[in-house]
Design a binder for these strands. Structure first.
Length: 279
DNA sequence: ACGATACCCTGATGGC
DNA sequence: TGCCATCAGGGTATCG
């Protein structure tokens, strides 16, 4: 469930306590969630954390080895993943089978990757350039960065419905089920509207509203449903501002009509048939 | 190129 | 109280 706003909150909350720290040890849980080298050095042992970046729903923890470039770890939170910093002295629960990787830092604190459902994972690369090339090359521009012209070009190239197209990370990176439904509602667009019939001017409005939506959610700490928390354990509150997601059968905020739902691309899709006509 | 479907996995939920 | 069935969903893979 972590989408762009939740991943960005996680990143922001980790930058302070983790960037600049040196990784003095790496411990692994019982499940292997690492693709690529599992050597401690590949997971930044002995290196300083130089930066934590984000593209779409994906984070990258970049190491630096003195003057030399360090290794790089891509982190995807999947559905239930979290990346958290724990202060020195905080005891991790014993026997937690969902703790997958613990990075011990020179401050005495640690960073922990936990993911019960294991839809997320870690990918190690020799350096940041390799990570970007191998892992991020196929991703579209980030939803906060993409220009209307770029999005229009991608949508014009597909006949798929907007719901399915916007969930595709090769079209725009960072949107998931929640924010796509919210965005289409804000734009008054039916989720089955074919991508290639959307006018450039409409896409321009869409990009504006998308940025506003995502930035508002980031400001509210993201959306917490069951258990999403950021890197410091903080919950978000944007779920209280959702207008359609999770509200099928309830009244539309605008017209008071009943919100409908459809299964599109295997995803529960909630929309207002009156305010989002067509399809 | 697209839609449909299955898979990965576990916690939460609801019925009995 | 407990046991089962069901469901959710991001990404990937496969089939038609």
């Amino acid at each position: 469930m972590p989408e762009l706003p939740e991943v960005e909150r996680t990143r922001l909350s980790l930058v302070g306590p983790v960037v600049g720290r040196t990784v003095v040890g790496v411990r692994f849980g019982p499940h292997d969630v690492v693709t690529g080298s599992r050597k401690p050095a590949a997971l930044l042992k002995g290196q300083k954390v130089a930066a934590i970046e984000r593209r779409g729903k994906e984070m990258a923890v970049l190491g630096s080895d003195g003057a030399a470039a360090g290794t790089a770890v891509a982190v995807h939170l999947g559905m239930t993943g979290s990346l958290r910093y724990h202060k020195p002295g905080v005891k991790l629960p014993k026997g937690d089978r969902h703790l997958h990787v613990v990075w011990e830092l020179d401050c005495g604190g640690c960073m922990v990757f936990r993911d019960p459902r294991r839809f997320g994972g870690l990918w190690t690369f020799p350096d940041a350039a390799e990570l970007r090339r191998q892992r991020w090359e196929h991703l579209a521009p980030d939803a906060l960065v993409i220009t209307p012209a770029e999005l229009h070009r991608k949508l014009a190239a597909t006949r798929r419905g907007l719901k399915v197209a916007l969930l595709d990370q090769r079209v725009v990176a960072g949107l998931g089920n929640i924010y796509v439904d919210e965005l289409l509602y804000l734009c008054g667009l039916h989720p089955e509207t074919a991508g290639d019939v959307v006018a450039a001017a409409t896409v321009q409005t869409m990009v504006k509203r998308m940025r506003k939506l995502l930035q508002r959610s980031i400001a509210a700490g993201g959306s917490s449903f069951r258990d999403y928390v950021d890197g410091s354990g903080q919950k978000g509150s944007f779920q209280h501002l959702h207008q359609v997601y999770g509200r099928a059968g309830e009244p539309c905020c605008r017209c008071r009509g009943e919100l409908a739902w459809l299964l599109l691309g295997g995803r529960m899709t909630v929309f207002c048939p009156v305010c989002q006509p067509g399809g």
